[in-house]
């Protein structure tokens, strides 16, 4: 594994035998079917997997947001934009996460918690999508799951609160009843650990 992480950082091939890693996973195959011919059975399968997870993910934001409507909006956007999904850039779950995140920021803004709908940084930039990148995106998803599993519980908790609730450090501090400095240092440590695993050396 260490070797493959090093290879990943250098942006080189992890393995010469790409056929095994190149196979699309089920959500990617569904996305491809939706993009290629508006396949409703594939969309139903995607919905069956992601809608209940989106609902629980979004329910925790606790804000004045209509969860059911946000889930619908997210899945509707998935349908509309299916052909812009690029498996070389992100796994399907990551792509859907960014859609839900942007819609939630927008909903919170409309609800009066002012946060503007800046386009995501990745919306503007069309980085090359080749087979190697496709493999790297898949590798990254696997590394992420592993890295998350290795975080100490108190760090994993503040990371979850940051992603699930989009709360600022100060809000998390109030919610957990721990000092702001503690929240800051837990987030810093968690972000550091994750970035060491995930990023090419800075």
């Amino acid at each position: 594994m260490a070797a493959s992480i090093t290879a990943l950082r250098r942006g080189t091939r992890v393995s010469d035998d790409l056929s095994s890693v190149r196979a699309l996973d089920a959500p990617q195959a569904w996305m491809q079917a939706i993009a290629a011919h508006r396949d409703r059975a594939a969309f139903a399968a995607l919905h069956r997997h992601f809608a209940p997870r989106l609902a629980s993910f979004l329910a925790r934001s606790g804000g004045p947001t209509d969860v059911e409507e946000l889930v619908q909006e997210t899945m509707l956007t998935v349908w509309r934009k299916a052909d812009s999904y690029n498996p070389a850039q992100a796994g399907v779950a990551t792509w859907i996460f960014t859609i839900a995140r942007n819609l939630r920021i927008d909903a919170l803004r409309r609800a009066g918690r002012a946060r503007p709908p800046e386009p995501g940084p990745l919306d503007d930039v069309d980085d090359a999508a080749d087979g190697e990148a496709l493999m790297l995106a898949g590798e990254r998803e696997a590394l992420v799951r592993q890295a998350l599993g290795q975080l100490p519980p108190e760090q994993a908790e503040v990371v979850r609160l940051t992603y699930f609730t989009e709360q600022t450090q100060a809000e998390i501090s109030r919610r957990l009843g721990v000092p702001l400095g503690t929240v800051k240092s837990r987030l810093r440590l968690a972000a550091k650990r994750l970035s060491v695993l995930l990023e090419p050396g800075r």
């Binding site: 992100a90 990551t94 996460f97 960014t98 990745l122 992420v144 990371v159 992603y163 970035s195 995930l198």
Partner: peptide, 24 residues
């Protein structure tokens, strides 16, 4: 941008492992 992409993948992993909620 690459680092943000990696941190977005963290969001994807958290979404994927969220316990499914009951749907209508």
């Amino acid at each position: 941008r690459e680092a943000v992409r990696a941190f977005e993948a963290v969001g994807g992993a958290l979404l994927d492992s969220a316990p499914p909620a009951a749907m209508a």
